[in-house]
Design a protein around this nucleic acid. Structure first.
Lengths: 171, 171
DNA sequence: GTTCTGGGTATGGTTCACGGTACTCAGCCG
DNA sequence: CGGCTGAGTACCGTGAACCATACCCAGAAC
């Protein structure tokens, strides 16, 4: 993204983007991040992507205590990230499980980006614990930054950040 | 991603991915998320992407108190996301500013994915406050999930999640 | 009717994040 | 010399997040 006060010769200051002049709240990055914060919320969403659906499975996989997990599942269903679906295993009473909604599933690009980033920049001795591949072709899954015209974006300098309709002038 | 206990006809249970059998810690998604948690860390990283570099600017843009901001900047430089660079404005003493490192800049795909997600699913009355476009072509910036062979990935069902080398069998 | 299981609620305590405010410290400026 | 500015540090209070543990409740199984 274009940065003001640029000092590298390859970057140029953009008069339309004077960060000081604009109030950028509510910020979309922050609002999205608030879905995955606190830590326990991120853990629950991650597990949902790994296929976990039931209370006790969430509890064992995340290590959260019942109280915290219960609160988090309530929050996330309240936000429409998860939804409660009834099921009935034969030989036990009817219960319900938590599944990702379309809204939740659409976090995939963010989750995958984070997973790729950690695999690259925070490697662990044993290697990654989860590997994502393209079903059928078997190649690794990754995310790519592109524009709506499908041009690839290789550097932050190719991205123009500008105040949108929701931005207001400071003071 | 493939999910066990799948009930939709389009999903199929994958015997290689029995979530119950595997211990997936340390989890890459969680480790990446921990860089952006607590909330104040996410705010600082977001501002860094918006071009903020100096202590007082971070303080005003994020609303964080000096103590919290100071701690967060120390954490993030310690993790190699930001780096301190000396500068010297004429007429004032030499100081230093905080810039994104390559490691920090590589969070771009995650940040952009989150921004796009919030713009789609958590719209605000006034519209987005920040709009990203492709410099030159002007089209909107977005992220895309692809495989290493460049096949597009349109649904989670196209993604195969499998335990990696770092995973261990439970008990 | 007692037990088992899944899915929670209730209570209590600790740590951490954060806000508010005051203070410091170094150098340039007048 | 005293004041101003940018960049912090120090201290204190509050609330949120989290953990541990105990308990509860419905229905099926025995």
């Amino acid at each position: 993204m274009q940065q003001p006060r640029a000092q590298e010769p390859t970057e140029a200051a953009d008069p339309a983007w004077n960060r000081e002049a604009w109030l950028l709240e509510p910020d979309s990055v922050q609002r999205a991040l608030d879905v995955l914060v606190p830590r326990s919320a991120g853990q629950v969403v991650r597990e949902a992507f790994y296929g976990t659906r039931r209370f006790d499975d969430f509890r064992r996989h995340t290590g959260l205590t019942p109280g915290v997990l219960s609160a988090r599942l309530r929050d996330l269903t309240g936000q429409g990230i998860l939804t409660k679906v009834a099921y009935h295993d034969t030989g036990s009473r009817g219960r319900h499980e938590y599944r990702l909604t379309d809204k939740g599933r659409d976090l995939a690009a963010a989750i995958i980006s984070l997973l790729n980033w950690a695999d690259r920049w925070l490697p662990t001795p044993g290697g990654p614990t989860v590997v994502l591949t393209h079903h059928g072709c078997g190649a690794a899954i990754r995310t790519e930054i592109r524009c709506a015209h499908d041009h690839p974006v290789d550097s932050l300098g190719d991205i123009q950040a500008a105040p949108g309709p929701g931005a207001s002038l400071r003071d």
